[in-house]
Amino acid sequence: MKTVFLLASKEVREGSRNRWVVAATGLLAALALTLTFLGSAPTGTVGAHPLDVVVISLASLTIFIVPLIALLISHDAIVGEIERGTMMLLLSYPVRRRQVLLGKFLGHIAILAFATCIGYGLAGAVLAVGGQAADAASWAAFLTMTASSVLLGAVFVAIGYLVSVLVSDRGTAGGIAVAVWLLFVVLYDMALLGLLVADQGRFVNGGVLAALLLFNPADSYRLLNLTGSDGIAAASGMAGTVRDAAPPPAVLLAALAVWVAAPMALAALAFSRREL
């Protein structure tokens, strides 16, 4: 455990030195603050609370940004160190390969968690100082959104490692990382939409659709945050039948957890077999 902690803290230190932490935190904070100021303007008398609007818009943006950041920091983690020759040296030490993977994972998650909490926390603080009272449910939704954003990041960090362990050079890892991002964030939903239109409700009922959404971590995250509370579900147009058909939050969280564990386990297996 001490070894894993050592590896994780080295990863955090490297990340803060080469400005990954600063860049990610800055990006997330800038987006969150922009959405907070824009998002609190047009609500008027519609009845949606500004905090709910911010949660909806931030969650929608997180789906694009956080997986991208996670893949950027993770795709290079293994293959990059192998190419630079640092992995051979590290593995000549009393270190197991799964400890290397786990240590890097914890370090990268710490970086992502820091960036997300600071970035989104700043937006939350601005709203709280702005004096608009929000109910506990809205704040709970905000906290859920922040925490699940880190979880979404963890999913893509794990997928990034799997890519990094399997390929033989950094360029390929980068290419595949971009493809993974496109697939889960853009193409999957378009394909699903196409399927629904073509199917005309003959085979794909609510249950099948819910299952299909669980196969994409980005969709699980979206459902978790947009159907989480009554106010948000109403404001995001997810109330009613949509919300009834969506899997309950526990199932969505479990799906995200599996999306972390499965790629990590596969990456550990592939890494243990890989020769340097």
């Binding site: 030195r17 020759g85 640092t86 040296l89 000549s92 030490y93 270190v95």
Partner: peptide, 17 residues
């Protein structure tokens, strides 16, 4: 492993540390 020292052919370290 603790009693083994190794120097790789092209030794490289993280430049920011």
């Amino acid at each position: 492993r603790r009693r083994l020292g190794y120097l790789p052919e092209t030794v490289s370290f993280h430049p920011a540390l």
